[in-house]
Design a protein around this nucleic acid. Structure first.
Lengths: 166, 166
DNA sequence: ATCCGTAATGTAATATTATAACATAAAATG
DNA sequence: CATTTTATGTTATAATATTACATTACGGAT
């Protein structure tokens, strides 16, 4: 069975963040061991900060958190850690927000399709091959050969839609 | 017949820019008249600059052009004109580039799907309802109600793919 | 035509996001 | 343990975008 939505997509608002953060860090660590990547303290720390927010976080917010955790840091510190995390699929950049979210599926070569809730500001991640294929196919009809897709969708998640019943 | 790709998508590299720029300005002007929008000299000038590039152009590049054309200008001048142009569909923002491209179809309520050529840096615009519908449908399966889609695709356009024959 | 209210633009300052360049430190490799 | 590479520290600056407030131009009422 292929999951078409990430495990971290719009968890119930009350869910236990500590567990999913720990899972994500473990998963990243395992992936790094398996692929001979250096999961340094800084990279782990940045990934933990990203996950802790559980919503898109800006580079300078990460920087503030690092400093709160009494780590000497400047912008390049953060951007370099993010570059590593993005390159290896532990984090995605949301272009339309200039912000970053954690991804718990570093292994799959997925094209993230992001669902950005305008109410709770959390981001769910679809990884639907049908969407990717349709786009590639349509582009091909005009002779365009696709190498990468950026898909970011605004709207309202189910948790938030359900909360207006008052 | 519904066109699924914009007239401005990847014209031959030798095409006559002056004509498409003039067409776009005329089209924008007509739209503004019809909708009681003020197509001021500044807005026209910015739109013309955007179209002249015929590829994504940054706000500060527009600013430089304005100044070249001996118009007093500061960043807000540009960003406000762009806001108007984007709001009314004369220009789209390419989020992944922090840059802007002209659109020649202000009327249609289209969700632009942008094809960004990594070689010539031009941008084609698909406006394919199937893609939009599929995304909305897939999002719905996880309870997400879509209001806006940002779709930006990297790759190589047909003109550029054909140019490597040496 | 003149006044008035609104919308657009001018202007100065500053916020936010991101990178360049070079120095230092830590780790992997032979 | 010496060497090479990779990662991080540090300073400065580039690139993108907005806030706040002053001024001007426009559109509608009289």
């Amino acid at each position: 069975m292929t999951k078409s939505i990430s495990a971290n997509a719009f968890p119930a608002h009350e869910h236990d963040h500590t567990v999913c953060i720990a899972d994500a860090l473990d998963s990243a660590e395992q992936h790094c061991v398996a692929h001979q990547l250096r999961f340094t303290p800084l990279r782990r720390q940045v990934l933990e900060i990203v996950w802790s927010r559980h919503a898109p976080i800006g580079a300078y917010e990460i920087l503030d958190e690092l400093r709160n955790e009494s780590r000497a840091a400047a912008p390049p510190t953060v951007y370099r850690a993010l570059e590593f995390l993005v390159d290896h699929g532990f984090v995605h950049k949301i272009e339309s927000l200039n912000a970053f979210v954690g991804c718990d599926r570093p292994d799959s070569e997925h094209v993230g399709q992001f669902l950005i809730c305008g109410s709770c500001h959390q981001v769910g991640e679809l990884d639907d091959p049908e969407i990717a294929k349709l786009i590639a196919k349509k582009a091909k009809t005009v002779g365009f050969d696709v190498s990468h897709q950026t898909i970011e969708v605004r709207g309202v998640c189910s948790n938030c839609a359900g909360e207006n019943h008052a």
